[in-house]
Simulated assay, not measured.
Amino acid sequence: MSITVKDVAKKAGVATSTVSRVINDHPSISEETKKKVRAIMEEMGYIPNLTARNLGKQISNAIGIILPPLDSKERLGNPFYLETIETINEEARKAGMTVAIATALDFEALLSNVKQMHRQKQVDGFILTYSDNHDPIINYLMKEQVPFTLIGQPYTHEEKITYVDNDNQLLGKQATEYLMQHGHQNILFVTNTTQENVYFERYFGYQKALMLANLPVHPAVTFQGPEDYVNFEQLLKDKKPTALVVIDDLFAMRIIQLLNLYHYQVPEDLSVISFNNSIFATLVHPYLTSIDVDVAALGKMATQSLIEKLNNNEQTSARMVVPHQLIKRETVIAIKE
């Protein structure tokens, strides 16, 4: 025979409405009563019906994870997003919540998905896993006052948004300085994205390090289409760099393959440093020197902040910075005089 709310209320000597409020952690119930009722629920083996509970509260008990438009193989296979989903899912599970994922090939379809999830009350709030210059979704969430947190630094409204990020400008600066410490003076910054804030911040850091050292600063080498891969060989011949700072590990792997195609050896001819310290960093030799951004901490803090917003039913703003760590491996060597 299944235990009901009435059974718990009878044994606890309280009204059934009191038990319901305890289940929903209502502030009107004292901590003493909550402890007493919860102890009896555990003793009797009563498990609250989350569906019924959520209907009563008009909530879904779910978190929406918004991925960026998966419009390229790099984004589709980027372990950063998979690791982020895994961490968010684990934190949500601890809080008795589930997750739903919003994804699409472009921003228009992605916005449509997010609107549907919100209007149909499929989720209570969202975690944005990226920060893009032309993102219509963040504007929608702010306009509709939908609770959300952001992994990354927003382009606008920083004072109104709760976001968790690394200090990406410092990451870019330290990656470049590490190359400089190994004698490199002619360094290029290589990227396959120019819309995401992570690119701007890391590139600014690269610029800052070189400017402070009175070394030449180059425009970012951007890969947007097939012609950029073809032109890269000539660019290397013209610029004659000794080292590259690459936007992330996955793209660094592609760049190393491209360098091999053009008969450059890493690190003998060109040193390479990248970011994220993903699984790709140690898949093949040479192992990538990379800056660990602690993806688990990013996802955990973003999820905990969103759950806190939902529990307190308030729109707050905060900036949380996750520490990083340089992982020294095989793709950076001291330059030969």
Rank of each mutant, 00 (worst) to 15 (best):
V22I: 10
E42L: 11
E43S: 10
M41Y: 07
Y199C: 02
Y199L: 01
T162N: 14
M253H: 06
L244K: 00
M211V: 14
Q265D: 12
M41C: 07
F223W: 13
E90P: 03
H134Y: 10
T282M: 13
V217P: 02
V146Y: 09
E233T: 10
Y206L: 02
P48M: 12
V230Q: 13
Q257H: 15
F204E: 06
S305M: 06
P226C: 11
I291C: 02
Q174V: 09
E42M: 09
I138L: 02
L179E: 03
N139C: 05
L171M: 12
K94E: 15
A209W: 05
N89T: 13
G96V: 08
A213I: 06
G77I: 12
A281H: 04
E42V: 02
L179C: 08
Q116V: 11
G205I: 01
T51Q: 13
K300A: 10
I66H: 07
F280A: 08
F280P: 06
L259C: 10
I335C: 07
N231M: 08
D165R: 11
G13D: 10
T316W: 07
P154Q: 04
F189C: 03
P69G: 08
D249L: 00
S60T: 09
F275Y: 15
N186R: 14
L141G: 04
A52H: 04
Q207A: 00
I59S: 06
I3P: 01
V246E: 02
L170G: 00
K73G: 09
I66S: 09
I85S: 09
I3V: 14
L235N: 06
T98E: 11
S278Y: 10
E227D: 12
H26G: 00
D292R: 06
V246Q: 00
L244I: 01
N78A: 04
L105F: 13
L55M: 13
A302R: 01
I66D: 02
E108I: 10
L258V: 07
P69D: 03
P219N: 11
D106Q: 07
N186C: 07
D25P: 01
V164I: 15
L50H: 12
K94N: 11
D292A: 08
S112V: 10
F107E: 13
Q224G: 13
M301Q: 15
G96A: 10
T176M: 09
S131L: 05
R329K: 14
Y262P: 02
P219C: 06
F148I: 01
A92G: 06
L250E: 01
D7A: 12
D292S: 08
S30H: 08
S271T: 08
T162V: 13
T162K: 07
T162M: 13
E196I: 01
A92I: 01
A52K: 06
H184C: 04
F148A: 03
E74T: 15
P27Q: 06
V266K: 11
V266I: 08
M180P: 05
Y199D: 00
T316E: 07
K11L: 14
T242N: 03
T87N: 06
Q174R: 15
P68G: 02
Q145S: 14
S131N: 03
T222P: 04
K73H: 15
D135V: 03
P267S: 09
H285T: 14
N168D: 12
